[in-house]
Amino acid sequence: MASLWSNLRFRGLLYQVLVVGAVVALGGWLVHNTLVNLAARGIATGLGFLGREAGFDISESVIAFSPSDTYARALLVGLLNTLVVSGLGIVSATVLGTLIGVARLSGNWLVGRLSTVYIESIRNVPLLLQLFVWYGVVTSLPVARLALHPLPGVFLSNRGLVIPGLDWSQGWLPILDIPHLAGFNFVGGLTLSPEFAALLAGLTVYTAAFIAEIVRAGILAVPKGQTEAALSLGLSRGQILRLVILPQALRVIVPPLTSQYLNIAKNSPLAIAIGYPDLVAVSNTAINQTGQAVEGVALVMVVFLGISLALSALMNWYNKRVALVTR
């Protein structure tokens, strides 16, 4: 026994068996307790509930939904809402963050200072608090009749943000659909609900502060000699940025940028605090109605893991391409 214990391979095997055994035992114990508890409370298990009628309405949806649809469709609506807000958030945060990051590096003292103030004050305050403020601001806007009208066709009111949209229903050429006030509400155009607008604003503004720092660090990582070499070739400032600095900076920028994109997706469930029906919010309603917390939470986790894996796979592919091109 003693010599077996001192055998390298045996000991390695033993450690592994012990750890895996402990994990399996813990998992089994939790599953057992859960099953007992669920049985005691008369809660069903399994994914059968997905096929049943949801019975609740969802305030906004990109696909048709009514309370008589199934839980599965309700969750799909939630997922699509999550994807929409994350996708738009990624685009707008990248644009805003890049602008601020470049502004911070600009030779202009005033602009640089303002960018620093922005970054420091946004980064150091919890996103959820910022969301509450955004939601408060959006909902305390004037009623539709007295809506703010900053640009032609754009209305800001406590009903949300209304912007011109494209109408494809009149044949193959889209018609610009400019919203106008009719009675107490707007007709035509695209309406972003207050919840959606607040969430998008919050995610954009918050993440942009982090992206700005990433962009700045990426640009600073390009050696100064590169700019000097490009200047000596007679390239203009704009050309240098576009042709010399950015392609090199991107290699440094892309990996941390990926994790910021993931953060947008993972922060989007904060929607629940302001009532935007994203995946987590919908699944919580489902959990409250059916009691099937395990399945609901597990589904959400699986979906987010899927999003994470997909995004990092995409970024890895991009990263590889960038690395090859510049080497």
Binding site: N33, T34, N37, A265, K266, P269, V297, V300
Partner: peptide
Amino acid sequence: GVPLVSVLFMASVMFPLFLP
């Protein structure tokens, strides 16, 4: 890979189920 909100929900909703 999972949002903190989900982890917290799991903690608040599911821990009671996990225990004897």
